[in-house]
Design a protein around this nucleic acid. Structure first.
Lengths: 333, 333
DNA sequence: TCTATTGGTTGGAGCGCTCTAATGCTGTAA
DNA sequence: TTACAGCATTAGAGCGCTCCAACCAATAGA
């Protein structure tokens, strides 16, 4: 259970500790003979460098901390894929930690990540207050994904929610819909831009917006639909605040004997793996998630390397994914 | 950007570095006066201890490494919740890392975790070869979740897949089904026990097993159903290897003009959040995921504290969750 | 011949912390 | 008075590593 150290390897290979260090870091200024001797000894002992000691001694870190606010959401998994890809390419490791959707736990998670003194921090859709983020940003470079910030030392990567909502409305309008309601995400992240985009697009088409307050869950989506039916104000098309909400909406519509998309068209938002399931086959708005991750990692590494000091605000273009939940109103063609 | 050290705090508080260390570790042998002076200085400087230096000096670690084979699968998120709960309770931090379903990346992920010299390692459904796990287990305590092992230094936490399959079959038989096929998970983790449980349960009921080779995806589930339809051997009930497969199966059944559960009943496995969606409402087998995490963390901490040396093999009882995809055959009642 | 130069190698200091043993300082017993 | 607990505090070594400056051939140039 006791791991070998550089000293052990040096002893076995008959060289100095410093030389082993050079070999471990692939220094070009080591003779082939010594290099292979060291590698052989390391192999035999099962040696691998001690990342913490290394980072302590070098006063640098090759670790990027990633705080995922909600591990249950596959959205973040793809963002992490993007981060991981870039980080690995550039010789950085990532350590992940989760906030479990609670501000207190999230704070603890960030504290824990900071205690490893990573080179930088990426926060995925954090719910901690802006002041806490600002405080972290005083200590190391910080990039926010799916959350905006005005702090000038913090970079952000977001999708253009307004544009996404506009894409959805344009699509529905082009199918012939005139009465299109929006099931609103309330306080949820990014709900604001989506709502604004919806209103703007509707008005641009000369149509009257109809906003129904809802939430980012399937239960809420179903409830919103029932309230529309009860008040006899069901439109011919629905733009949900996200995919879960849309699936709940579809479910409630079918329960009420309505057919999707024949009677009502539904558009989701996020293009989660759920939407892609054949059984669901939801028309939705896709966000380039892996690209979020890549850009976030890139932005962070620029800061880490002191290549940039002005903040960067990435606003990525979402795209429309047409599947089977949208059609012309009334089943007409 | 340069973080204060213990030395800085000591200087400011007018005490020695060692005393600051004692305060940071809540030692009882510090006078109240000094303690508050130190805490005040630390607060003013924004000091927080350097986890790596601490672990290096103390030759101990309060970090548990968690390797998640697939971050996209919400299954693991709940296991992590359980791990996190226990770890936090007992003063440990967790760092997560992902293998992205690829053995090579997974290996790298484990390497990376090991380089932090954590106190122990939890591997969630790893796909790396057993030898790699054995090697890691020589260096530190290792617990496997959703993967079995015969290595005596490794603890495991699994669900009883045989029992789960049996529960599903008993349920279907009690509804009156006699022809029940199993869409098999092939090489996938836990596919073996589920298949065995299916066969045993069928034979116990005097029924003939019908195994259709498939995979853990919705596309594979749909394909398996089409092959059954094409060969004219569609049974009245289906036990899928997991929920995704079941959803794909349902989709293919509906495409073929068959109604679920009226014409064919379908049971999934895992009780993912997908299954709980009203729109899906899948009868399935639930695994106590958070409990997996709790037990894994507990087992690991026992090893970390040298409280136990014999291996532990947790085999948890799954349970049946009846929703709307199962009914008596032919819609009879 | 002597001095540079170069490429490979090494000792030693030090990163921020913990831990052990030693220190000073009270107060009490002999 | 000396001795000795008992407690709070501290100096110093050392965890595993990196980095710097020094060192040591071996070769090249004068």
């Amino acid at each position: 259970m006791v791991r070998p150290t550089m000293e052990d390897v040096a002893l076995r290979a008959g060289v100095s500790r410093a030389l082993v260090s050079l070999v471990m870091r692939n220094s070009p200024k080591v003779s082939e003979a010594r290099r292979s001797a060291v590698l052989k000894a390391a192999e035999e002992l099962g040696y691998s460098p001690h990342a913490m000691a290394r980072s302590l001694a070098s006063r640098t870190s090759t670790v990027l901390g990633v705080m995922v606010s909600d591990l249950h959401n596959a959205f973040f998994a793809e963002v992490v894929d993007g981060i991981d890809e870039v980080a690995r390419e550039q010789g950085f490791d990532i350590i992940i930690n989760t906030g479990g959707r609670s501000p207190a736990r999230e704070r603890r998670a960030v504290e824990s990540l900071l205690s490893f003194r990573p080179a930088g921090l990426i926060l995925l859709s954090p719910v901690v207050p802006a002041t806490a983020i600002g405080k972290a940003a005083e200590q190391l470079p910080v990039v926010l994904v799916a959350r905006s910030s005005r702090v000038s030392t913090v970079d952000t990567v977001n999708d253009d929610g307004e544009q996404g909502a506009r894409l959805a409305i344009d699509h529905l309008v082009s199918l012939g819909h005139k009465r299109i309601a929006h099931l609103d995400g309330g306080e949820g992240t990014q709900a604001g831009p989506r709502r604004r985009g919806y209103v703007t697009a509707m008005e641009a088409h000369g149509l009257a917006p109809q906003i129904v307050s809802s939430e980012y869950t399937d239960v809420a989506g179903a409830r919103a639909i029932r309230s529309l039916i009860d008040s006899d104000s069901l439109p011919t098309a629905i733009l949900s605040c996200n995919d879960f909400n849309a699936v709940g909406a579809i479910s409630a519509l079918e329960d009420a004997g309505l057919r999707v998309p024949h009677d009502v068209s539904v558009v989701g938002y996020d293009n989660t793996s759920l939407a892609a399931l054949r059984h669901v086959s939801l028309t939705t708005i896709d966000q380039p998630r892996a690209e979020f991750g890549r850009l976030a990692a890139l932005a962070l590494l620029q800061r880490v390397r002191d290549e940039r000091t002005e903040p960067v605000r990435h606003l990525l273009n979402p795209s429309l994914v047409v599947r089977s939940t949208t059609a012309p109103p009334g089943g007409q063609r």
